[in-house]
């Protein structure tokens, strides 16, 4: 174990996989010479050379298309988007090509590409840079979606993503990059997709979270504890595949559930999770399934408006109190 930042854990995962497998390479804007906008790829070009850490022109459709093609040709590219908001111009490459080629070729062509980069809200980055778009990718068959909440998960899930033969949407949270955590140094440490973690056990209400909302829910759980309510917190880790087994087992225990996300509530990840709880766990429910999410507006720049648009600890506590009332 070593104490390191979330961003360092991601870098370690990529470096280990590049050592292990010569077909792994990195491409993206400013990933090489500039060593990454968030310093995630720091030192990697110096270590692995320009052929394996490739600076690209400012064209997301070009980055995604090149990476998808390279993956189809047998390499294992890690394509970085400077933020996931910029990936919108690459949607055709991701949705219509990377996600579908294995299916359309009858399994003859694999596409082991990882699209990664910062997602999430905050830091006064305003409407075009501060948004969470995971539901867009969850919606598409053929894509896997991972959203790590801790440094250890960042490493374990990214290594799994690189080894996975399918295209993976790997959404990091800019607000977590500097967070430290204990990370296993074992180069064989991977976290398989589709296995959620119960990060805090509780008896009265289940808080379902992923990415940054995990720490928000853990803080809420501490406050709820002081109010006499025992909250269980689940970190989903990946949205596709979605580990409903762990969620349902928890709901069977607590009978009340709040699903949280940073993105807008309309047709978000929480809506899908809540629907599945209704379909599969109906008889275990003692209260309506509630969702906590972002305000239904483009992200405001003004600090106070921004913080009221992003779901926080108080929002989670209020929802937990409603379902346990």
């Amino acid at each position: 174990m070593a104490l390191m930042r979330y961003a360092e854990a991601l870098r370690l995962a990529m470096a280990e996989e590049m050592e292990r497998d010569p077909s792994v390479f990195i491409c993206g804007e400013e990933v090489g010479q500039y060593q990454g906008t968030f310093r995630v790829t720091e030192g990697l070009m110096q270590r692995f050379g320009r052929d394996r850490v490739v600076d690209t022109p400012i064209s997301e459709i070009g980055i995604a298309g090149m990476a998808t093609g390279a993956a189809m040709a047998g390499l294992r590219p890690i394509a970085e988007f400077m933020t996931w908001s910029f990936a919108l111009s690459a949607m055709d490459q991701i949705v219509n090509h990377a996600a579908k080629i294995t299916y359309m070729s009858g399994g003859r062509i694999q596409c082991p590409v990882v699209f990664r980069g910062p997602a999430g809200t905050g830091n006064q980055l305003s409407a075009q840079h501060s948004q969470s778009l995971e539901a867009w990718f969850m919606h598409v068959p053929g894509l896997k979606v991972a959203m790590p909440a801790t440094a250890a998960d960042a490493k374990g899930l990214l290594k799994y993503a690189i080894r996975d033969p399918n295209p993976v949407i790997f959404m990091e949270h800019a607000g977590l990059y500097a967070q430290r955590g204990e990370v296993p140094e074992d180069p064989d440490f991977v976290i398989p997709f589709g296995k959620a973690a119960v990060v805090r056990e509780g008896a009265d209400v289940t808080l379902v979270a992923y990415s940054h909302m995990v720490s928000t829910c853990l803080k809420a759980a501490v406050s709820l504890h002081d109010m006499g309510i025992s909250a269980e917190v689940i970190d989903l880790r990946t949205l596709t595949p979605l580990d409903m087994e762990t969620v349902l087992a928890s709901v069977a225990k607590t009978h009340r559930v709040v699903v949280t996300q940073e993105e807008w509530l309309n047709v978000g990840a929480a809506a899908e999770i809540a629907a599945r709880i209704g379909e599969l766990g109906f008889d275990d429910l003692d209260a309506p399934v509630l969702r906590v999410g972002g305000a239904d507006v483009p992200m405001p720049y003004a600090k106070k408006l921004e913080s009221s648009a992003i779901p926080n600890e108080q929002d989670v506590i209020a929802a937990a109190l409603r379902v346990t009332d």
Binding site: H255, F282, D283, D284, L285, D286
Partner: peptide, 9 residues
């Protein structure tokens, strides 16, 4: 009568 699924079960 308003009742939860668990209560009915």
């Amino acid at each position: 009568i308003k009742s939860s699924p668990l209560a009915r079960k």
